[in-house]
Every structure is written in C-alpha cells, then in structure tokens.
Nucleic acid binder design. Structure first.
Lengths: 120, 120
DNA sequence: CTGAATCCCCGCGGATACTG
DNA sequence: CAGTATCCGCGGGGATTCAG
C-alpha cells in the first residue's frame, strides 16, 4: 500500500474548514440516502417507483427530498412525460456521473471490507 | 470520462440492500463528521486537541463519539500515554489508511467541483 | 403512478459544566 | 490536557393522507 496521500493532504485544509463551500456539497453527498441514491442511478435511468424499490428502506419523503437536492445541485436530471398514467425518469447528469465515478473506490472498499470491520 | 462503471454496478445490489453489513460501515463513514475526522488523520498522528482544532466546528461530544466508533471499527488507533498532563494520540490503522485512500477521489472531486455545484 | 403536504416523534448532535 | 456527563432543541425522517 504505497499510494501517495499528497493529494488528500493538500486538499484537507479546504474540506476541514467550517463555512467552506465544500462542506455543503459533502453534506449533500454524505447525507443519509445521498450515496445510495447516486449509486442506484449509476446503473442508468430509473423511474420513481424503480428507484424507490432499488434503494431498499428509503421512505417516499426522503427519496423526494434527496432527489430534489441533487436536482438543484445539477447532479441528477429529472424528465417528466405528460402521460396517463404519469411517468418520470431520473438519471445522472454528466456532473453526477463524474461524482459517481469518484465515489466508486469508496464503495468498492466498503463492500470488500465491511465484514472485516464489523467482525469486532 | 471513459471510466468503466462495471465495478460500481456489480456492487450496488449489496450496498442498496437494507440490513446489509455494508450499510452499517457506510453509515459510520458518511456520518456527519466521519469523513472529516478520517481526512484529518490522513495527515498522520494527531493529539485530541489538535484533532479538535483541525476538524473545524466539531464539538467535543461528536469528536469523542466519532473516534470511539472508528476505534471499535478498527479504523483508528488510540494511544494513551500515562503522563501528567495526559497525552493521547490518534492515528489511522492500516485498514483506516486503506479507507482514506479509497475516499481520496471523492474528496478530490468535491474540492474541485464544489463551486460548480453551488453556483446554481 | 408520481408525487406534494401535513403531522409528529425520536434521537442526533450542540452547549455547557464538571472531573482526573 | 483529555475527556465524561447532562440537558435539550430542532430537524431528520416515518406514517398517513390527498392530488394530478
């Protein structure tokens, strides 16, 4: 494990400072359901109902709140079709896709090491 | 941006399932102060007071709670020296270091794109 | 089917005071 | 210096109802 931490070190002064804009974004992403909703959308476009079933355990309210936050952040795109019955599709914007790719190593690590961490 | 999302896709079924062990670990990491405390310790060993000042805005209670969680997770090592006045040092375990390295891309992205996200 | 709106509770997390 | 103990406000988040 000889990966350099230079990048991480150089950016920490920003992230660690209160009232820094990065705090807000980090709070959105690390909000209770933020990571999971983004991960679900990494699969591609999903409808409301699919998203609700995909992210196991999320309530309708929190799904709505989380989606609206990401939509106003420009991370998630919402496309409503004027049909009966209504159909609404959610997908990642290019920015959201970048974020998901940046999250990928973290998720990979968590999946790989969850057992090791909880074994204590 | 041609990074493959194969890994992310293949692991999402795990992360997205309620009562999955990965949920617990993910909750610890994405807890309000989790990422910031880990990022601070990526710089190396820190004393309690240094840590408190480094993670701007954290209360003593939440620092204690967060540290104890990570310590019992095996991500942070606590070393107390029987001196007067007392001195306690916190550092990442090898496992914690791995986690920080996995978090690095996310933090890098957040720092780089915070402005873009908040500009709306 | 896709939500918005409302009520309400519990527990996260902050502030303060105290101790070894 | 390095915490622990206690109180408590408030907002995250669940359940339910209603609407387009």
């Amino acid at each position: 494990m000889t990966v350099s931490l230079q990048v991480l070190r150089s950016e920490t002064p920003d992230v660690l400072t209160a009232n820094c804009p990065t705090r807000v974004v980090l709070d959105h992403v690390t909000s209770k359901w933020g990571v999971l909703v983004l991960a679900a959308l990494a699969d591609g476009t999903l409808r409301w109902g699919e998203l609700r079933r995909e992210v196991d355990g999320i309530s309708e309210k929190m799904l709505a709140v989380t989606l609206r936050t990401f939509e106003s952040d420009g991370l998630v795109h919402r496309e409503a079709y004027p049909e009966v019955p209504p159909r609404v599709e959610y997908s990642l914007t290019p920015l959201g896709l970048e974020l998901c790719e940046a999250m990928s190593p973290l998720l990979t690590w968590v999946v790989a090491n969850a057992e090791a961490v909880l074994a204590r």
